[in-house]
Nucleic acid binder design. Structure first.
Lengths: 103, 103
DNA sequence: TTGCTTGTACGAGATTCATCATACTACGAT
DNA sequence: ATCGTAGTATGATGAATCTCGTACAAGCAA
């Protein structure tokens, strides 16, 4: 077998407030973030009951990952999603908590 | 003379996280917010050296006001702009500070 | 191999939004 | 009254984005 599939994640330095706030401005994406914050850090995309189609789901997960808010890792046919809590708190202290509390 | 011109402001209950985050996601609008946070609370729109045209400025100030982030009050031919710090902290605790610190 | 599950790629459509220029209003000063 | 300043209204344009369906790829199970 070849190298495992992998997905690009920005480093904390590469995260921009612009991307973070734009990403969090969408209610569907905040639903994902809230569910990740409330549960374990290894939920597949399918575990989120989102009110959109499968391809739209893919889109939202990618926006969150590219902003640096979530991590994504292949695991079989699924993807394990996690909140990048520590890195976010490092880069933008208090921001994630404030948004989660307000949601 | 008739009644003074007035502008609509949402109450804290009417503020939505959606509008707040969308408003703060724009860099021009964050420039305005940052300048208000750093200075006095009575700066006219003209006092902001924004890299956009006059009509675009009007647009951004309105978005901020309708989201509940700034207050606007007519004063002669000008408008006095202020940050609604207390009300924002009441409705979305920590959010404004986190964004200002990250900016 | 065959089929099933999970997610992606690739358009396409509709909406939103940031931007501008022009014309306009409201107010104050001269 | 006239003029200048501050901001608004309106309409246009181009870019971004949220959405979908369909077709596809990758992995696992039987």
């Amino acid at each position: 077998m070849g190298p495992a599939r992998s997905l690009e994640h920005p480093t904390p330095e590469q995260m921009s407030l612009d991307s973070i706030l734009s990403a969090l401005a969408d209610p569907v994406r905040r639903t994902i973030v809230a569910q990740l914050a409330g549960g374990h850090d290894d939920q597949a995309c399918i575990a989120f009951a989102l009110p959109v189609s499968k391809s739209t789901s893919t889109h939202h997960f990618r926006v969150l990952r590219e902003a640096g808010i979530i991590s994504q890792q292949y695991r079989g046919t699924s993807i394990l999603n996690g909140l990048r809590t520590e890195e976010l708190n490092l880069r933008f202290p208090g921001l994630l908590d404030a948004v989660l509390a307000a949601n």
